[in-house]
Design a binder for these strands. Structure first.
Lengths: 199, 199
DNA sequence: CGCTCAATCTTGACAGTGGCTAGATTATTC
DNA sequence: GAATAATCTAGCCACTGTCAAGATTGAGCG
């Protein structure tokens, strides 16, 4: 329980994670400051050290949170999609892109930063779960054509690269034609391109 | 001409660009320090200000240098490839990936950082040249099937996303099966995946 | 209930950063 | 050769992350 004016906040770790996400969204990964996070949480600049080893420790925890929501974003798309394997894979790709566009700085923290400690157990577990989901979704598409339950490594990598490429380019505002569209049209076009590439 | 021990170095701007690249390669974009660059160049910490507005100005110039070499990396691959349009496009993709793996920090600076000023004329021109090359290479593949000289926007974006996805994932060491291979095998597998995706 | 001890948080310090100003040195131009 | 502009240095400031020391609080235990 958060009590103003007292030494012990009761749940500072969670508050710092929220504040960290806000800082990330507001100032981006390159402007991220631990003191800024502490200020947002209404706490002294040295308080975070009791909950995270250092600034990279906080960023590591934030990346882990990101990977869990990343999977949820894909599942949300898949719930409203057709149930055939290809539609489900395309939906996962759209969820991948949704996440990148909704959380630009967090996405970069997860995929394009050396600051999170990838050896961290929490982060490794969260990222591994996302990777397992990818493998499962690809396997579902290919189990008809293949006798083995494990899909071809090449097909997994190819699928990942395609989804990731769109997500990362959208994240850095590089696909101008898509940026100019309304969301519904953009989704339709992305779905077409994913379907054509993944099939 | 660089004269040691004298005030005027004669070509400090070029020296700073080299030093900046070294700093980038050594400490990564997140550890990049203007003072570190000045030290590498053997000059005081405030000297760079006379050649670049600020640290982001130096990073902007470095990104522009990067885009020019980025195109060269693709052309180098294309020279040693078959001349049919698809092989040429695949070769460009391999050059894209080559560059990312050879210049990890620079690649991130170019594609996944907010620090370079994208409104800068020099950077904009260099990035636009790379984009024009992409459009031409895609057009060459589709001019047989299409009457127009401008290729479909969707095909351009799709091609870009595929190459970029592989490059960015390789850059952040995420495609484990490929990382374990020797270069020749990796190239062959990447070429296969690109060919299958782009066709 | 009261005491002790560990956990939590604050304050103050330090080195490192980018950017500014003032001044020293050198190149250029007339 | 003198004046002016360009270049570079040195010193300062605000900000950063981290560390050490001390203040405050909660939890466990008698």
């Amino acid at each position: 329980m958060r009590r103003v004016g007292s030494y012990h906040h009761g749940d500072l770790r969670a508050v710092l994670l929220q504040a960290g996400e806000a800082e990330l969204a507001a100032r981006g990964i390159e402007g991220f400051s631990l003191r800024g996070v502490a200020k947002r949480a209404g706490v002294s600049h040295a308080a975070p050290a009791h909950h995270f080893r250092d600034v990279n420790g906080l960023l590591t925890a934030l990346a882990a949170v990101g990977f869990r929501r990343f999977v949820q974003s894909q599942e949300a798309r898949q719930k409203r999609a057709e149930t055939d394997a290809l539609s489900q894979l395309v939906a996962a790709g759209l969820g991948y892109i949704d996440f990148a566009m909704a959380n630009p700085a967090l996405f970069r923290l997860m995929f394009s930063s050396d600051r999170p400690d990838r050896e961290s157990e929490e982060l490794h577990a969260a990222a591994a779960a996302a990777h397992r989901k990818l493998i499962e979704d690809v396997a579902r598409l290919h189990e008809a054509h293949s006798s083995r339950s494990e899909p071809d490594q090449a097909e997994v990598m190819r699928t990942w690269a395609i989804a990731h490429g769109f997500a990362d380019l959208m994240n850095s505002k590089r696909l101008k034609p898509l940026l100019a569209m309304r969301k519904a049209d953009r989704d339709a076009m992305l779905a077409d391109m994913l379907r054509r590439s993944l099939d």
